[in-house]
Design a protein around this nucleic acid. Structure first.
Length: 665
RNA sequence: AGCGGGGUGGGGUAGUCAGGACAUCCCGACGGGCUCAUAACCCGUAGACCGAUGGUUCAAAUCCAUCCCCCGCUACCA
């Protein structure tokens, strides 16, 4: 009896649509699952919506709907997107479900019973203006450790450390921007510090990608802070016996992995405990996640499972982030490619995106999305190499024979297919998706080469049996290609399979890898071949690039201002009378500027990288004189020097010398 | 300045954890071939002292140390 495998994907947060960054995790996970099944492994694949947490509450409030309605909307959206891309979960649930609530309560109770939870009074940020406690990401302030601006429950911009409520200094309410205050509250804590030795052990054995393990190992060398696991919120899973508290979203979210398995198992009359309450049993749990939630999956989650007596994951596979034009994805700045609006709705085939995302670079590396490279990969690799080989072979066979001709299968072909198969299996099993796809692609290259060197178009006129043999070999390779490419491109591989006259489409996904060694049946009727892959036109790519540019432009576009509003700005010409660097600062200069006032103004300007202080003295520049005074590097600045912003600062000067203090309008 | 991610032929990228013989693949350049195929495909040529320096080793892109540069976020770009 073979081992059972449970594969999970990090839960999409149900408060916004899917972008291609999400897919970096889900597509490889789906490839992995399909590949396991092709090896005959008993595999379950679950995922679901992350439904709780404050952002959903706030978002729903703004839309005038209930959190539940909002969650349902995006849950359906993700469900549709995943299906469109052939990412097929056995269960796609929601952490809002009753099963998840029950499971969460069970685990929390077990943690309490096992003495891993304690009560403590802490100070919590409370916004007097909004009239509510501000959990997590609605508090902004300073990280107590590194001094960077920290938001939410982690110092996301600075040291990356997880922060407890109340740790952030100088809290500000992010919703209304007013100053928050700390109030004392009683909350429950999970004693993570108890698990240090256990985690050290666990991480040693943890499989998956190195980025996940190394990141986590780095953490457990430091002090492990206990986690506050309750929040003052209405929306979420009620903490046992405490009506006013809800468990922290990072407690009930991963528990979704369990409850989704439960729901799936119950539907199929299977005991879910075989997967989750059977430590040391014959089940492997593998988590696919984005690189941004490694801490939660490698530290917090295993400790929780251990503390509650559940089965631990065997592997954590963390994907690299997706960027656009070297910029981090950002909705607000327009750097985003939506799966529906920008891809599927534009008529692109889902398999092309699957191929591109999985084969562009290593799974753990950053992927810089580019329409241009997407086009290159599709046109050269998919169309030029794979598509062309399949098409030239099928068409030649169909036109000349109408069926699979007879002829001996070449030992060289057998060997090459066997090697490709082994390489594909091994690579996918090691989460090396690019490597696996490249191995399959090199079989297509071999096919082209084989076709070319055997010249069946010549031999058919002089040596019919020779031509038949060549074509049967090529068709045999096509069959192997369909099988090997099915995990990465299920739809197109199935189409190739169908055109070969193999059994029905749906069966390709159940066809084991080993089928590649079974010789294609001579005499099998071939269907009229059609082109599987078509080139993407330059104009289409130009259109996509333009729409991305437009979005960035829209995002940075400023609103109209009235003349009155403009008049609020006091812009004047000033003469620089003194300039000196600010110590310890690379970019800043301290300037004294004559604005026609009795005393020169002290202004700090970020132009040190482009301008030499000595060259500035005597120059006239445009100055925003009523800029609110601020301290930079401890130096007061009372104004702002205006400059064109292009590869550094290009100062604005009047056409000819004017009196200092002359108004600009 | 802090944190994170990178520096491999003209562009992109593999290989770095487990060090080894001509450094991978895609594009681009150049030359040839072929015509079954989606001007495709096949063959060949040129092009990289693997960011720098030092170390470990019989052997380093790969391990160690130091440094430089680029990108992202943040900070002090007022």
């Amino acid at each position: 009896m073979s081992r059972k495998t449970l594969v999970t994907c990090g839960l999409p947060y149900a408060n916004g649509p899917a972008h291609i960054g999400h897919l970096r995790t889900y597509i490889p996970a789906d490839i992995f699952v399909r590949s396991l099944r092709k090896q005959g492994r008993d595999t379950v694949f679950v995922c679901g919506s992350d439904a709780h947490g404050t952002p959903i509450v706030i978002n729903a409030e703004e839309l005038g709907i209930t959190p539940s309605e909002l969650v349902e909307k995006y849950h359906d959206h993700f469900d549709q997107v995943f299906k469109s891309l052939d990412i097929i979960f056995d269960e796609f649930g929601s952490t809002e479900s009753q099963t998840n609530h029950n499971r969460t309560i069970d685990i929390v109770n077990r943690l309490i019973d096992n003495d891993h939870v304690f009560l403590k009074s802490i100070e919590l940020a409370y916004c007097p203006t909004c009239g509510r406690f501000l959990p997590d990401r609605y508090v902004e302030g300073t990280c107590p450790d590194c001094g960077a601006t920290a938001r939410g429950d982690e110092c996301d911009q600075g040291c990356g450390k997880h922060l407890e409520p109340g740790e952030i200094l100088e809290p500000v309410c992010k919703i209304c921007r007013s100053k928050a205050e700390y109030r004392v509250q009683e909350h429950f804590f999970f004693r993570l510090s108890d698990f240090k030795d256990f985690l050290s052990d666990h991480l040693d054995k943890l499989e998956g990608t190195l980025n996940a393990r190394n990141y986590a190992l780095g953490w457990i060398n430091n002090e492990l802070n206990d986690w506050c696991i309750t929040r003052n919120l209405e929306w979420g899973v009620r903490f046992p016996d405490h009506e006013e508290l809800v468990v922290y979203v990072w407690v009930d979210a991963p528990i979704g992995y369990i409850s989704f398995t439960e729901d799936w198992a119950n539907r199929h009359g299977i005991d879910w405990k075989e997967y989750w309450m059977n430590p040391g049993g014959d089940t492997d749990i593998i988590h696919f996640i984005g690189g941004d939630i490694i801490y939660h999956h490698c530290i917090f989650w295993p400790a929780m499972l251990k503390g509650a007596g559940y089965t631990l994951p065997r592997a954590v596979v963390a994907s690299g982030m997706v960027k656009i034009g070297d910029k981090t994805f950002s909705k607000s700045r327009g750097y985003v490619v939506w799966v529906n609006d920008d891809y599927l709705d534009k008529g692109f085939h889902p398999d092309l995106l699957r191929y591109y995302l999985a084969s562009y670079t290593s799974h753990t590396k950053e992927l810089n999305f580019s329409w241009k490279i997407f086009q290159e990969k599709v046109n050269n690799e998919l169309v030029g190499t794979l598509g062309n080989f399949i098409y030239r072979t099928s068409l030649f066979a169909y036109k000349n024979f109408g069926a699979v001709p007879d002829g001996e299968i070449d030992p060289e072909v057998v060997k090459t297919i066997e090697d490709a198969k082994n390489s594909v299996i091994e690579s996918f099993n090691e989460y090396e998706f690019k490597k696996g796809i490249d191995a399959a692609m090199s079989l297509a290259s071999f096919g082209n080469s084989y076709f070319q060197s055997n010249e069946p178009w010549k031999s058919i006129k002089t040596d019919a049996p020779g031509a038949k043999k060549t074509i049967r070999n090529c068709l045999h390779i096509v069959k192997a290609l369909a099988i090997l490419f099915e995990p990465a491109m299920p739809k197109l591989a199935s189409e190739a399979w169908r055109q070969l006259g193999m059994e029905s489409d749906s069966e390709l996904s159940n066809t084991p890898y080993d089928e590649v060694t079974v010789e294609i049946k001579a005499g099998q009727t071939l269907l009229k071949p059609s082109m599987l892959f078509t080139k993407i036109e330059d104009s289409k790519i130009a259109e996509m690039e333009r729409s991305l540019d437009d979005r960035v432009l829209m995002a940075t576009k400023k609103k109209h201002v009235s003349f009155e509003e403009f008049s609020e700005l006091d812009i004047r010409i000033g003469t620089i009378v003194q300039a000196e660097p600010i110590k310890k600062s690379k970019k800043l200069l301290k300037l004294m500027v004559d604005l026609g006032e009795t005393k020169a103004r002290q202004i700090v300007a970020g132009i040190a990288e482009t301008h030499n202080p000595d060259d500035l003295v005597g120059r006239q520049v445009a100055v925003l004189a009523n800029m609110k005074p601020a301290k930079l590097f401890g130096v007061e600045s009372r104004g702002m020097i205006l400059a064109a912003d292009h590869d550094g600062a290009i100062l604005l000067s009047p056409e000819r010398k004017v009196r200092a203090g002359t108004c600009v309008r």
